[in-house]
Structure formats: structure tokens, C-alpha cells
């Protein structure tokens, strides 16, 4: 019985990665929920837009590296390129809105028409990303890769089991926290943020109160762009950049937003962590943890893995199905029906 070693092993292979993954999902799901509550459609281009934003950051990173400007304070160069990525993506999303979505808003098209339009944008975005990046994997993480390594941890604590904290993971968790706090401050304390909430609550009354819907829409896309670029960059630093993986994030992001309640920002965050921990927990091989926890002689002889990793989408899907069956409004009662 060595609970401490069990905990360390669990943290290293499950808790920390899940926390990082959950933070990345949360930033993405927040964007989905914001677009849903303001523009009122399911934004299918979300994953691919995230990929394009990350591609822009990678482009900036390569440029900076070529200039010899690298690794500020040992952190990844990509951090310096984020402002560039933000500018590109804000411009991209606002242009997409102007060229595509604005017309459908004007003619008061059905939400599904807007979803369809977002499919078109998805195709275009997808094509642009691949034109620049191809389909293969790009790694752009540099700087000190670890805050502390397994060996350092073991030497320091004297435990048998080691634990590492990668800078990308730590960065992800801290950034997500800061961004979430900033977002809630913006939504609850500023005039623009409140006008967004008002617009989401009651469009007609917001109009009557003199809130300019086009401005609200612009702010929404801008915030979405920020969330997307950060989420995409952090995900890419953590796991490497492959455009298709970003597309596949669509499902867990939607699942998180629906689980939390579409239209509820706090719900999107909670939903994202639930999805992340469920995915990781169910596809994690618990053998080591139980080897430490069980009394001698009773150690498990299998991997103790509930599902193979290939089925992580099945976990997300199961969560989605359970929510749809039992509580379609989500945990925090989103806008539904």
C-alpha cells in the first residue's frame, strides 16, 4: 500500500494531462457557446478555424526563429507569435462574418442555413490551413520543455514513482485560468460584455435599448478568435499540430458545451473538464495505480483499462447521449427549445 506513489502516478499520466486537455477544450467550448448564444447557430467551422489560427501562430513562430528571436525566458517562442495569430484570426473571422454570415442574418435565415454556411467556411478554412501546413504533423514546441522532469521529481521527493510537469501543460492550465477569469470579468463587469449578455437574453429588447447588434456580433467574433488562437496554440504545443486532429476536437467541444448547457459560459468550462476527465479516465490503464493501492499479492494482472484509447470519442459520445436523454438543457440550463 503506497497511496502516495499511486497519487503521483495518477497525476503524471492522468490528472495533469486531463487538466491540460480540459483547459484546451474549455477555451474551445467557450467559443462555441458564445457564438451559439449571440449568433444562434452551431459553429461547425470551429475546429478548422482553430487549426488556421494555430497555423498563423506557427508561421509567426518560424519567422521569429528565423530572425533569431527565440525562447523568451525559456518559454516557447510561439507565445511571442500569439499576437500575430490573434490579429490574423480576428481579421479572418470578421471577414468571414462580413462575406458570409451577415447576409443570412439580414434575411433572417433559419439557424440550419447558418450551420450550412459554417460548413462552407469550414471547407475553405480547411483548404487554406492545408495549403500552408499540409496534412502532416508539425511540432513547434521549443524552450525548456519541462518545469521539472521525472528524475528531478524522484530525486527531490525520494518516491519510487516519478512525475513530470511539461511547460506546455503548465502554460495551458495557467493561461486557461487567466482567460476564463478575464472573460467572466468582461461579461459581468463591462458595458460591452453586459450588452452581449443582454443580446443573448432578449434580442428584441436589446435592440429597443439601443444595443447595436452588429457591434455585439463583432465583439463576439473577436473574443472567439482570441479563445480559438489560444486554445489551438496550447493544444498544438502540448500535442503537436495536425489539422485533422483539430477537426476532430469538434465533437468533444460540442459535447462539453451541450453538457454544460449551450449558451452558458460557466457550463462550457465545467462540461469541458468533465469530458476531458471522462475521456482520459476511461481510456487510462489503471494498473500501476492499483498496483500501489492494493495489498501485496492482490495486484491486478490486466491493464485495468476500461476502453482502448481509440474509443475516446465513444466516451464523449456516450456523455452526449446521456445528456440528450436525461437533461437536454445541460447542467446549467442552457438555451434549449
Amino acid at each position: 500500500m503506497e497511496p502516495l506513489n499511486a497519487l503521483v502516478s495518477l497525476s503524471n499520466f492522468m490528472l495533469i494531462p486531463a487538466l491540460a486537455y480540459g483547459s484546451q477544450l474549455a477555451l474551445g467550448a467557450l467559443g462555441i457557446t458564445l457564438i451559439f448564444s449571440i449568433l444562434r447557430f452551431a459553429h461547425f467551422a470551429h475546429g478548422d478555424t482553430m487549426a488556421l489560427g494555430t497555423a498563423a501562430v506557427i508561421g509567426g513562430t518560424l519567422f521569429l526563429q528565423a530572425q533569431g528571436i527565440t525562447e523568451p525566458f525559456g518559454l516557447p517562442t510561439a507565445l511571442l507569435a500569439i499576437p500575430f495569430g490573434l490579429l490574423v484570426m480576428i481579421a479572418y473571422l470578421l471577414t468571414a462574418d462580413k462575406l458570409v454570415y451577415k447576409y443570412f442574418r439580414k434575411v433572417k435565415a433559419k439557424p440550419l442555413t447558418l450551420v450550412m454556411a459554417s460548413l462552407g467556411v469550414m471547407f475553405v478554412t480547411n483548404g487554406i490551413t492545408r495549403l500552408f501546413m499540409g496534412v502532416g504533423e508539425t511540432r513547434f514546441e521549443d524552450g525548456n520543455r519541462f518545469l521539472f522532469t521525472v528524475r528531478e521529481f524522484r530525486d527531490f521527493t525520494g518516491l519510487a514513482e516519478g512525475m513530470a510537469l511539461r511547460s506546455a501543460q503548465a502554460l495551458t492550465i495557467i493561461t486557461a485560468l487567466v482567460v476564463m477569469v478575464a472573460l467572466f470579468w468582461f461579461l459581468n463587469r463591462t458595458r460591452s460584455g453586459k450588452s452581449m449578455r443582454a443580446y443573448s437574453d432578449n434580442e428584441d429588447l436589446a435592440l429597443l435599448s439601443g444595443i447595436n447588434p452588429e457591434r455585439v456580433v463583432m465583439i463576439t467574433w473577436t473574443i472567439t478568435a482570441i479563445l480559438l488562437v489560444l486554445a489551438g496554440t496550447l493544444y498544438g504545443l502540448d500535442k503537436g499540430f495536425r489539422p485533422f486532429n483539430y477537426f476532430q476536437l469538434l465533437l468533444p467541444m460540442f459535447a462539453a458545451a451541450i453538457l454544460g448547457g449551450l449558451g452558458s459560459p460557466i457550463g462550457a468550462i465545467v462540461g469541458a473538464y468533465v469530458v476531458a476527465f471522462a475521456e482520459m479516465g476511461i481510456t487510462y490503464a489503471w494498473r500501476r495505480v492499483f498496483t500501489y493501492l492494493m495489498p501485496e499479492g492482490l495486484e491486478p494482472n490486466s491493464m485495468m483499462q476500461l476502453l482502448p484509447v481509440d474509443y475516446k470519442f465513444a466516451v464523449t459520445f456516450a456523455i452526449l447521449v446521456i445528456v440528450l436523454l436525461f437533461r437536454p438543457t445541460g447542467i446549467f440550463k442552457g438555451k434549449v427549445l
Binding site: K194, A198, D201, G210, I211
Partner: peptide, 30 residues
């Protein structure tokens, strides 16, 4: 509204998820 007319619709005349004070603030948005 800017000319000084106030209108209270019959239904959906509040922002339900916002606090009472925020509702008033939104009334004064202009």
C-alpha cells in the same frame, strides 16, 4: 427611444438571466 420615448412590450420585456440592476443598466444603455 433616443428622442425620449420609452416602450414596454407586453411579453419578453426583461433580460431574464441578468440581475435586476443589470436590467436597469441595459435600459440606460444609450
Amino acid at each position: 427611444v433616443r428622442k425620449g420615448m420609452g416602450f414596454v412590450p407586453q411579453t419578453s420585456n426583461i433580460f431574464p438571466s441578468m440581475s435586476v440592476e443589470e436590467n436597469l443598466e441595459m435600459g440606460a444603455f444609450i
